[in-house]
Simulated scan of single mutants.
Amino acid sequence: MAKEKVKKQYLNGLERILKIDQMISQGGYPSVEDFARVTEASIPTINRDLRDLRMKFGAEEILQYDRIRKGFYYTQPSFRIPAMLTSEKQIVAAQLMSNLLNLIKNTPVYKKAIEVFNSLSDNIDEDTKLNSKKLSNRILFLGMDPVKIDDEIWTKLEEAMSKNNYIRFKYLNYEKEIVVQPWQLIYSDGMWSLYTYNQMPDVKDNRFYNLPGIHNLEIDKKNTFELPPDFEYTKRAKGNFRRYIGPKLLSCKLKITSEKTLNYIKTYNWAEDQKFETQSDGSTIMTLTTNQEYPLLGWVLSHGMYVQPLEPEWLVNEWGKNVKEMARLMNGV
C-alpha cells in the first residue's frame, strides 16, 4: 500500500519575519541566503519580507546591511518587533482566553484585554483564523454574567492600590463612612469585590465589599499604608468553598452517604488536605481543614441528606439548627 504523501508545512509571512528578526538580533550578520535557507523561502520572498520588516514593523532606519560582513544588523541592538500570534494553535489558545474574558465583561479591564488579543492576530491569514475558530467555538466557559462596574470606581481603586493609599466610601445604604486599606480586587461567581483591611475602630479586620455596592469613593492621597507580605487572599484563605476568610482554622469531619454525591465532591479540590476514607457501612468519611466556616455550612446544607457533619461541634450544631428549622417550615409549625 502506497504511503500517504505528507504535505510540507512552510512558514507563513509573519513567521518568516519573526525568524528573520530573531536571526538579526543574535548579531551574526545573517545574509539573504541565510534567511532563505533557514525559512525555506525564495530569495525574492525574503527581499519582500525585509521590505515589510522595514516599512511595517518600525525597522526602516534601524535595519542596515554591512557590506564588509555581507549581512544585516540592527543599529539599535535591543530592537525587536512586537511578539504576535503566528500559528493556528496559538490563535486557538488566544481565542479561548478571549472567551474566558467574557466572564468579566462590563469592567474597564475587559475592553483593554480584548483589544490586545485582537491586535495580536491582525497579521494572520484568514484561512488560519477560520480554522482556529472552528475549534475554539467547540470549547465553552460558563459563568454568571458579571454586574456592570462603574468606570470611575474602578479607576480610583487601581490608583489607590498602585500607591497604597487609604480610601473612604459609602457602602450600600449604610450611613457610616468606611475607611479601608484596599488590598486586592477579586472576581468570583460573577461578582467583583474589594478585599480590604478595615480601619474602623470597631472592626480592624479583613472585610470584603462588592464593587456595585460602593459609592462616593475618595482616595486619601495624604496617607499610605504598608502592604503585609502575606496580603494575598489565596495565602490567607484555607478552602475553596466561597470567597471568605474566617478567624480560625477548623478541623472538619463529614459523612457522605451517597455514591453520586461522593463522585461529584471528589471532582473538586475543596481543601488542600482533603481526604476520603471508605467505611464498613458503605459511607465515606471526608476530612479537611478550613477557615471558611459559613461557606462550608452552606455547602454541607446544599447536599441535603447525603452529607452530615460529625466535627467540629460548631458545625454540627449550626447544621442541626438549620435542619430543624427547615423541618418546622415544611410541617407548617
Score class of each variant (00 low, 15 high):
residue 132 S to P: 04
residue 123 N to I: 01
residue 109 V to T: 07
residue 123 N to H: 10
residue 111 K to C: 08
residue 128 T to H: 06
residue 111 K to H: 13
residue 116 V to W: 00
residue 122 D to C: 05
residue 128 T to F: 01
residue 138 R to N: 08
residue 132 S to G: 11
residue 115 E to W: 03
residue 112 K to A: 10
residue 109 V to E: 11
residue 138 R to V: 03
residue 124 I to K: 03
residue 135 L to D: 05
residue 119 S to P: 09
residue 132 S to D: 00
residue 130 L to D: 08
residue 124 I to V: 14
residue 108 P to C: 07
residue 137 N to R: 15
residue 118 N to Y: 08
residue 131 N to D: 11
residue 124 I to T: 03
residue 137 N to Q: 14
residue 107 T to C: 13
residue 131 N to W: 01
residue 113 A to K: 02
residue 125 D to H: 07
residue 115 E to K: 09
residue 126 E to R: 12
residue 130 L to N: 08
residue 112 K to D: 10
residue 108 P to R: 04
residue 135 L to K: 02
residue 129 K to R: 14
residue 131 N to E: 12
residue 135 L to R: 01
residue 124 I to Y: 01
residue 110 Y to H: 15
residue 119 S to M: 09
residue 111 K to L: 12
residue 133 K to R: 15
residue 125 D to W: 05
residue 125 D to Q: 08
residue 116 V to S: 05
residue 116 V to I: 15
residue 126 E to K: 12
residue 134 K to Q: 13
residue 129 K to S: 07
residue 135 L to Y: 11
residue 122 D to Q: 14
residue 107 T to E: 05
residue 129 K to C: 07
residue 114 I to Y: 01
residue 121 S to T: 08
residue 121 S to D: 03
residue 136 S to N: 04
residue 127 D to A: 10
residue 134 K to I: 11
residue 113 A to Q: 04
residue 107 T to S: 13
residue 134 K to F: 05
residue 110 Y to R: 12
residue 125 D to G: 08
residue 130 L to M: 14
residue 125 D to V: 08
residue 122 D to S: 09
residue 114 I to V: 15
residue 111 K to Q: 15
residue 115 E to D: 09
residue 123 N to W: 06
residue 116 V to N: 02
residue 122 D to N: 10
residue 137 N to E: 15
residue 119 S to Y: 05
residue 133 K to D: 03
residue 136 S to C: 07
residue 111 K to F: 07
residue 132 S to T: 03
residue 126 E to M: 12
residue 123 N to G: 06
residue 107 T to N: 06
residue 113 A to Y: 04
residue 122 D to G: 00
residue 119 S to G: 06
residue 110 Y to T: 03
residue 122 D to V: 14
residue 133 K to I: 01
residue 135 L to A: 12
residue 109 V to K: 03
residue 126 E to H: 09
residue 121 S to P: 00
residue 120 L to F: 07
residue 116 V to H: 02
residue 121 S to R: 06
residue 129 K to Y: 04
residue 108 P to H: 00
residue 123 N to R: 13
